[in-house]
Nucleic acid binder design. Structure first.
Length: 294
DNA sequence: CCACTAACCTGTAGGC
DNA sequence: TGCCTACAGGTTAGTG
C-alpha cells in the first residue's frame, strides 16, 4: 500500500490527534508481524506522551516524552485508524472496510483537546513491523537509507556517485532504498515516465564517463520530485485499501500516467505511444515505449 | 560490491 | 457458486 506519499498522508492525519496525547494503555492482539513485536511493548509505552509524529522514507516515527522513538513500517497493507472517529468528528468519515481480525495493536489515548481516542493498527498481510528504539541514530532500519527524495540531499550529483558503473535497470535502482528512500512501485514508474526515461535503461548510463551527472539525471530528479509532491498534495493513491487515519481515500490514482494503464494511450502531449506492462525483478513496470528513451 | 530470485502472508479479481 | 491462478502499494535472506 504505502509509499512515501501515503505514509506522509498517514503522518499528517495522525499528528493532530497524537501529538500531546498520553498513551494510557496498549493492547497487543498479535505480536507476529514481519518481526515479532516485543512483549514488553505495552508496558514500555504506557504513560508516555507522544511529542511528535515524524516520517523518514516509508517509516513513521512516534517520538515519545521519555526520549524513545516508536518506529512503524506499514509494509503492504498496514494502516492506522481511529475507532469511533466519525462519532468524535462527524465532519470526517470512516468506512470500516477492514477486517477486524487483523487489528493487531490498539492504543488507548487521552488527548488534552480531543479527549479519549482509540487508535488501531491493522495489517492483513503482516509485512509491516513496529519497534521501539532508545535513540533514532541507533535504529538499524534507518541507518542505511538514502536521501529523502524531497530533501536537498537528493540531487543529480549525489545520484551520479551512487549510480556510476551500475548496470541494474533504472526501475530497480529507484526501488533501492539505499539510493533514494521512499519510492515504491507506483511512483517509480510514474517518475520514469515524467523523466522520459525507459525503465530498462542501465542506471550507470545516466552518468558521464568523468563521473559527472548527465542531463537525464536532472530529468530523473525532477520527475521523482514532481510526482511525489503532487501525490502528497492529493493525499496519496488509493488502489484497494489505502486510507488516511480519518478513513478518507487518496486521489492521486486518478492522475496516474502509466501505472496500471497498460493498453491506454500515453498522456504525453503529441505522443502516439501505448502504455506497456513488463515485469522487472518480479514486479510490474509500466511505461511508454515511444517517449521513454533507452 | 552487484544483480537477481524466492520468500514472507492474506485477500481479491478474473478465467473456466 | 466454486476452484484455481495470478497478482498486489515492501523488504530481506540467500545465491551466483
Amino acid at each position: 500500500m504505502p509509499e512515501l506519499p501515503e505514509v506522509e498522508t498517514v503522518r499528517r492525519g495522525l499528528a493532530p490527534y497524537l501529538e500531546g496525547a498520553r498513551i494510557e494503555a496498549v493492547r497487543l492482539n498479535r505480536a507476529d508481524l514481519r518481526f515479532a513485536l516485543p512483549a514488553s511493548l505495552p508496558a514500555e509505552l504506557a504513560g508516555q506522551v507522544v511529542d511528535s509524529v515524524g516520517r523518514r522514507a516509508k517509516y513513521l516515527l512516534f517520538r515519545l516524552s521519555g526520549g524513545k522513538t516508536l518506529l512503524s513500517h506499514l509494509g503492504m497493507t498496514g494502516s492506522y485508524r481511529f475507532a469511533d472517529f466519525a462519532y468524535k468528528d462527524p465532519s470526517r468519515y470512516y468506512e470500516p472496510s477492514q477486517n477486524e481480525k487483523h487489528d493487531h495493536l490498539v492504543f488507548e489515548l487521552n488527548h488534552p483537546v480531543h479527549g479519549r481516542l482509540r487508535l488501531i493498527y491493522n495489517d492483513a498481510r503482516r509485512f509491516g513491523f513496529i519497534d521501539l528504539f532508545a535513540r533514532e541514530e541507533d535504529c538499524p532500519y534507518l541507518a542505511g537509507l538514502g536521501p529523502e527524495p524531497l530533501g536537498n540531499d537528493f540531487n543529480a550529483a549525489g545520484l551520479a556517485q551512487r549510480l556510476r558503473g551500475r548496470t541494474a535497470p533504472l526501475k530497480a535502482v529507484l526501488l533501492d532504498q539505499r539510493v533514494v528512500a521512499g519510492i515504491g512501485n507506483i511512483y517509480a514508474s510514474e517518475a520514469l515516465w515524467r523523466a522520459h526515461l525507459h525503465p530498462e535503461l542501465a542506471a550507470g548510463r545516466l552518468v558521464r564517463k568523468d563521473g559527472a551527472p548527465g542531463r537525464r539525471l536532472d530529468d530523473l530528479v525532477h520527475g521523482v520530485r514532481a510526482v511525489l509532491i503532487e501525490a502528497v498534495e492529493a493525499g496519496g493513491s488509493t488502489l484497494r485499501d489505502f486510507r488516511a487515519a480519518d478513513g478518507g481515500p487518496g486521489y492521486f490514482q486518478h492522475h496516474f500516467a502509466v501505472y496500471d494503464r497498460a493498453g491506454e494511450p500515453c498522456p504525453t502531449p503529441g505522443c502516439s505511444g501505448v502504455i506497456r506492462r513488463i515485469v522487472q525483478s518480479g514486479r510490474s513496470s509500466f511505461f511508454c515505449p515511444v517517449c521513454q528513451k533507452r
